[in-house]
């Protein structure tokens, strides 16, 4: 039992708890929060598993994950605030149009 396995186990349990929150809800925002948290934990698990298997090139993957997590959440904000993905999130740039 290495430390990597222990950490991986802890991350998995934590993912399970976040998934439980995602299923329980109650609001849609709780579910976004859980999906986001699962994303962060996935990033960590990938890094740890990469070290466990002796293949740290998994880290590129971890970077992609955090990037995708971020874009997903921004899209959600936009969807909630405006109901469309179309216009700008911010109006500061439209002044000089």
């Amino acid at each position: 039992m290495t430390i990597f396995s222990i950490t991986a186990f802890a991350i998995l349990v934590s993912v399970a708890m976040a998934l439980a929150r995602a299923i329980l809800g109650p609001t849609a925002y709780d579910r976004i929060l859980s999906a986001n948290a699962i994303g962060t934990k996935t990033v960590l698990l990938i890094a740890v598993v990469g070290f466990m298997n002796g293949r740290p090139d998994f880290l590129d993957l971890a970077l992609v994950y955090s990037l995708m997590n971020f874009i997903g959440t921004i899209a959600v904000l936009k969807y909630f605030k405006f109901g469309t993905l179309r216009g700008g999130l911010s109006d500061t740039r439209d002044k000089d149009l």
């Binding site: 430390i3 222990i6 934590s14 708890m17 948290a37």
Partner: peptide, 19 residues
């Protein structure tokens, strides 16, 4: 060992807190 254990602990607390 120490840092990963602390990290695991906080991850578990996170999951617990979420619930």
């Amino acid at each position: 060992w120490i840092s990963l254990l602390i990290g695991s602990f906080f991850l578990l607390v996170t999951g617990f807190g979420l619930l």
